[in-house]
């Protein structure tokens, strides 16, 4: 109780509140994030999709949607990086650092708020998916598990975003840096095409790519077509490998982000 009155938890909740309050004040951010994903849905579901046969048959739109969810979640790091770089350049981080608040609160509040924000975007995309013909075929429990997996991944991506946002000099660089790293990650993957359609040399990358394993994991949980690339470990156990990726990425990036924040000065 005391921790809620004044302390790290209370401070983190205040920062979460602040970051959530901002979202409706900058509606363009959410609108473009959603439009970008919907553009990919339309492009692949109706333009290229007809030319991409799935090895085991199966509906391409059902195949596509989990990939779109994973792609959108992967881009969550950009939102966080831009927000963090902005707070830095506007001097807000200095203000926070001069207050008698828990230092962890700025980062915790940011990552929690951004995860909630991604949950909102995910809801919109799922509704859009249902409109174009996506469906959930494996029952509620597995659906919930898939959503938890997606949001946990979003949380990990937010921590990576914090590190990027503090490492770059301004918001423009934050945006460009995340885009040039995340875009290849989502294309050399199973998001848009079955991995067997990729050049042989790229197949191992596509197989181990965390965006791929997240996509394969959620396809499995949603009961959507999930063509395997082979007998590789990530194809056999995509959920396990995705959780492994999250642990590894968080272990690397969270301490790096915290260290950057401690030494940060604008």
């Amino acid at each position: 109780m005391n921790a809620l009155q004044a302390g790290p938890v209370s401070d983190a909740l205040v920062i979460t509140w602040r970051n959530l309050k901002r979202i409706p004040r900058i509606p363009e951010l959410a609108i473009f994030a959603i439009l970008q994903s919907i553009m990919f849905v339309l492009l692949f579901a109706f333009v290229f999709g007809g030319a991409i046969p799935l090895p085991d048959g199966g509906d391409y739109k059902e195949f596509l949607m989990p990939g779109i969810f994973a792609q959108t979640i992967a881009f969550a790091s950009a939102t966080t990086a831009i927000g963090m770089a902005e707070d830095m350049s506007k001097g807000l981080i200095d203000r926070f650092r001069s207050l008698p608040m828990a230092r962890s609160a700025v980062l915790a509040g940011r990552t929690v708020a951004d995860t909630i924000y991604q949950a909102g975007i995910l809801v919109v995309l799922m509704l859009a998916g249902l409109v174009v013909g996506w469906s959930v075929n494996n029952g509620l429990a597995k659906f919930v598990l898939a959503v938890i997996l997606l949001l946990a991944f979003a949380h990990v991506m937010a921590w990576i975003g914090i590190w990027i946002g503090l490492a770059v000099p301004n918001t423009e660089t934050a945006q460009q840096l995340t885009f040039v790293t995340i875009f290849p990650l989502t294309f050399v993957s199973n998001v848009f095409v079955p991995p067997s359609a990729l050049p042989a040399i790229l197949q191992p990358i596509a197989e181990w790519n965390p965006v791929s394993t997240l996509t394969a994991a959620t396809r499995e949980l949603f009961g959507n077509p999930n063509p395997y690339v082979g007998d590789g470990f990530p194809s056999q156990y995509p959920i396990l490998v995705t959780i492994g990726w999250m642990v590894v990425l968080l272990t690397i990036f969270a301490p790096m982000a915290i260290r950057k924040y401690r030494n940060a000065s604008s």
Binding site: S10, D11, V14, W17, R18, K21, R22, R25, I26, K90, G91, L92, D94, R95, F96, L99, P100, M101, A105
Partner: peptide
Amino acid sequence: GQYAAVDENLTGWENLYMFGRLY
């Protein structure tokens, strides 16, 4: 400071409430 370190996307009241809570 010299940069007016307040959150542009919050209202004036929300900024001050936030700082009060963090104090």
